[in-house]
Design a protein around this nucleic acid. Structure first.
Lengths: 190, 190
DNA sequence: CAGGTTTGCTAGCGGTGCTAGGATTTTGTC
DNA sequence: GACAAAATCCTAGCACCGCTAGCAAACCTG
């Protein structure tokens, strides 16, 4: 029993190490630099070990994304609850969202652009993902008016996502970001 | 002189064939299926021939994207000019944009999500890309109000881009697309 | 028809994600 | 404690990727 639990613990620890290595490497050099060989070297095991923990590279990226959802939800919650008034809350949450994407580009990519086969049916992801979405919805609620809250929230989210991705790929000048963000918030708030 | 021009013509034709093959293959099976080997087989030449026309695979994708910009601009122009009133024009242009993205996903990807090293400094791209952006701006102008037109247009564009990409990656339910699109147009129009 | 140039091919490099099979260690039983 | 059974992990390799060096064939020119 004792050795059994120890091995399980070690195995869980190794899995954690894999995700951490993938995350660090992606943040430092981008997802292209995250290869199974480099990952294996990083955790000081051979390549096939990775596949005893995850189905494939995509699953590892998904695991990293899951951590990201938790972080984003926390960041949004902090922005929303510390805002002076509901109107300011929308602006603050929007700013927090784009700041998160800007500061952790690799994490954001894993969450929203790259990993498609996310376990949406699992337990972890919907929890943290829903938390983030709920924060957005809570901020949007006062300005939803007669429109369906979910529709407004999803549309507002799309606006933020579009700003972030187009800016990051060089289609929008970074210098004008604040102005665009103000326009988005204003148009949804008026 | 005659043979010279004939060879140049044949070479140009082959270049056209490469772009067409890439485009067709991408539309049919996605960009992952577009490999240099398959492309070479498609045009019935060997792989290295591709590199005498384009610097690499990215450049081929960029060439496909350029065609896409022209198509998108035309589609947006048609939607805008055939609208009854300025308010309707915004809705129609928005719908035309998302329809384009939905019906030609591979083309849209090449234009706005994948190919990063687009020759923004060249002649073709800015022309058609600017045409599309100008159509968007023309539609947005009547509802820009006191805001900077460019900022509003870019933000509106971001909203459309976000809707499209999040829906395509399965993050937004396709069934609610029309409702979200209506929200976006309404919030920018009021 | 000979010479040189252009053209396009074969073959191969270093890399990717992923896996089969065997060696090695650990476990449980007598 | 010895030994069979089971779990663990590594070596080696597959099929594929984008891309390129170097040579053979076709071509144009004089």
């Amino acid at each position: 029993m004792s050795t059994q639990t120890r091995r399980e613990r070690e195995r869980a620890e190794r899995e954690r190490a894999i995700v951490a290595a993938a995350r660090d490497l992606a943040l430092a050099e981008g997802w292209d630099a995250v290869t199974t060989r480099r990952l294996a070297a990083e955790i000081e095991y051979s390549q096939p070990v990775l596949y005893s923990h995850f189905k494939g590279k995509d699953a590892i990226m998904a695991a990293v994304a899951v951590e990201g959802f938790a972080e984003l939800a926390t960041a949004l919650a902090a922005a929303r609850t510390s805002a002076a008034d509901p109107r300011q809350a929308v602006a603050d949450v929007a700013a927090a969202y784009t700041t998160f994407a800007e500061q952790r580009p690799a994490l954001y990519d894993a969450m929203f652009t790259l990993a498609v086969d996310l376990p949406f049916a699992s337990q972890d992801v919907p929890t943290d993902l829903a938390r983030g979405f709920a924060e957005l919805a809570d901020a949007v609620r006062p300005i939803a008016g007669n429109d369906d809250l979910e529709a407004v929230t999803e549309t507002f989210w799309s606006g933020l996502h579009g700003l972030v991705t187009l800016m990051r790929s060089g289609r929008l000048r970074r210098a004008d970001h604040d102005r665009r963000l103000a326009v988005l918030v204003d148009r949804f708030s008026r």
